[in-house]
Amino acid sequence: MIRIEGLSKWFEPPRRPRHLALDDLSLGVGEGEFVSILGPSGCGKSTLLYMVGGFVPPSGGRVVVNGKVVVGPGPDRGPVFQEFALFPWKTVLGNVMYGLLEQGVAKPLAEQKARSLIALVHLDGYEDFYPKQLSGGMKQRVAIARTLAYDPKILLMDEPFGALDAHTRTGLQRELLEIWERARKTVLFVTHSVEEAVFLSDRVIVLTRSPGRLKATIGIDLPRPRQRAELLVDRRYQTLVVEIERLMDTPG
């Protein structure tokens, strides 16, 4: 589904040495797979996601999605950002409908689809609210619904729960898994939380600190559907978390 081939990104600030953010990364993601990218801040994990999204051009290497080289953004890859990035001048309904209308879906149908997605993320009753009237967790739910609306095959999630408090965060992780288990989209999920990565993913990719290189790939073969309460006392989950944390702490 996604093939990342020798991908590098460097920045060349004027009058300063070139900064290498991501160094020669190769990686494959299968259809319907949930893969997390884990790494310390500054490892270029978000940049990696932006290049898969086509928002930022790579300096070297390429990204191939469904056999086609990525040259720009497209509705086959839907982003969800930590900053929510909702259109503040649109209501909840307007935000969720936006992509559908953009795809040429007729308004009544778009509205009907949007309403059912708003219900899916448990925001029914808030259709006419503006983003500024919502809490962080609600905003991120709207953002997820807005991206799901145009039905991208791939979800690109850039630390989507990073700005939320712990309680909201675990709630949204659970909801995301429920949605994913039904729709089975391919997900590339960037995070710096080991627990979050292990809880959600089929596979965890660990990157090194700046520049980001592939450090390890860990398969997470915990049974699904996963329940947080069960996992927390599950020996395998605990071992995985501790192992990955140790891996991240070792230099190189």
Binding site: F55, G72, F81, E83, A85, Y98, R146
Partner: peptide, 14 residues
């Protein structure tokens, strides 16, 4: 204008 707002629209095919 937040870049990600523009990216979100670009991803929708705008």
């Amino acid at each position: 204008v937040e870049e990600k707002l523009i990216w979100s629209a670009a991803a929708m095919g705008m």
